[in-house]
Design a protein around this nucleic acid. Structure first.
Length: 194
DNA sequence: CATATGATGGACT
DNA sequence: GTCCATCATATGG
């Protein structure tokens, strides 16, 4: 299968989050090549998205999200690294968060954004690299067919009134199949430009 | 430098 | 379902 190119990621984050499902993440570590299928992803926007830290004046994060599509964005939270990929046109702060993977040729738990970065040995050193040139982390296309579910994002305190989380129905590696926890009410946001 | 704050995960009821 | 250890960042003095 072919590597996914820039045009795949240049689209709206919501669309990319949906279409990345089923695609193959390839992580090369020396002689090893880890392959895993994306089973869950979320879309984030740097502006007009209260769930995104980039919306409240986070300089570097927002700047990175505005970079060219395909830039790898690594963000630390609690004691985990979360890996994102910049989407949309250059200048638009958008990204997708990879939340869960199905390991294909290795054994590891990848049913959560913090776990998959550990399994694939992705750390801050990948921040601002891109998936075209590094050769250590990229995506391969796939034409697998499956049913896509959508839901509100997980773990965010203030979500948009819009379903921006996508996952493969029935896949055991998805972090949560049921209703995600969303402690605070969804806020309204009419002005965003998705 | 000090402090606040989670895009978490796992253990537990 | 609930609780909470733990640490990379952001931000303010």
């Amino acid at each position: 299968m072919e590597k996914l190119k820039e045009d795949f990621f240049e689209k709206n984050a919501k669309e990319v989050a949906r279409k990345i499902l089923g695609k193959i993440v390839v992580r090369k570590i020396g002689e090893r090549e880890l392959r895993a299928k994306v089973v869950e992803a979320e879309a984030y926007f740097g502006e007009d998205d209260p769930a995104s830290k980039a919306s409240k004046g986070n300089g570097d994060l927002k700047k990175t999200m505005s970079m060219r599509a395909g830039i790898i964005l690594v963000y630390g939270i609690h004691n985990n690294w979360l890996v994102n990929f910049v989407t949309g046109k250059k200048g638009k702060p958008e990204a997708i968060l990879i939340r869960a993977l199905e390991p294909l040729n290795f054994e590891a738990r990848c049913n959560g954004p913090g776990l998959l970065t550990k399994a694939l040995e992705i750390g801050k050193d990948f921040h601002k690299k891109n998936i075209y040139e590094s050769g250590e982390l990229f995506f391969e296309d796939s034409d697998e067919n499956f049913e896509i579910m959508e839901d509100f994002r997980i773990g965010v305190s203030k979500d948009l009134p819009e379903k921006l989380r996508f996952y493969i129905k029935g896949n055991k590696h998805v972090s949560r199949q049921g209703t995600p926890l969303c402690k605070t009410p969804k806020i309204k946001n009419e002005n965003r430009n998705l």
